[in-house]
Computed example of a mutant assay.
Amino acid sequence: MNKQIIVTASVLGALAVIAGAFGAHALRSSLPPKQLEVWQTAVQYQFYHVFALLFLSTFSRFKNNTIISIYYLFTFGIVLFSGSLYLISCRGLFGMPGLAALGPVTPIGGLLFIIGWILLALSAIRNK
């Protein structure tokens, strides 16, 4: 098991639980349904990739650059994809409509996710 990956996944997993609970309880009455849906999408994708990180941690015996790259791709994908969606969904609460400018950051995070998944598949194919 890779300790760094597990610690990162654990922290991001705890934050996903907090964000999910915060959205379900504190934001439900403050955000319009569309913005709350954006918040929930951020939580879902964060959880998906936390589980992917935990799965990745089982490959510690390989300790190669590809596994490390996938770790960073998933981690930064969470920060950019979910992080931008969290901020965008709450822009009205913050009184900062300019946060909508973060919109182009979200697909960059999604692209990092996609590249990470492709590298994971290629790693599996190359492994003997």
Rank of each mutant, 00 (worst) to 15 (best):
I68W: 10
Y72D: 04
G103C: 13
T66I: 07
L56G: 03
L87N: 11
F94M: 12
A42N: 09
I88S: 02
F94T: 11
L120G: 06
F76K: 06
G110M: 09
F59Y: 12
S60Y: 12
F113N: 05
F55I: 14
A121L: 09
F55C: 14
I114T: 14
T66E: 10
V50R: 08
F74A: 00
A124C: 13
S84Q: 01
Y72L: 13
L122A: 07
P107W: 03
Q44C: 13
L120I: 02
F62L: 14
S84A: 09
A42I: 08
I108T: 06
V79I: 15
L54Q: 09
F113D: 09
F51P: 02
Q44G: 13
L99W: 04
F47V: 15
G116V: 02
G77K: 05
A124T: 13
P107T: 08
K63D: 15
T106D: 11
Y48M: 10
A121C: 10
I70Y: 00
Y72N: 06
G77E: 03
F113G: 04
S60F: 07
T58E: 13
L102Q: 07
L99Q: 03
I118Q: 02
W117N: 02
T58R: 13
M96L: 15
Y45P: 04
I118T: 06
L80T: 04
Q44M: 14
F47N: 10
G110F: 08
S57P: 11
F59S: 11
V50H: 05
A42D: 05
L53A: 05
I88D: 03
S89H: 01
L112Y: 08
Y71E: 12
V105G: 01
P107M: 04
M96G: 09
V105R: 07
L73E: 05
F51E: 03
L119K: 06
P97W: 12
Q46R: 01
F94Q: 03
A100K: 01
F59G: 04
F55L: 14
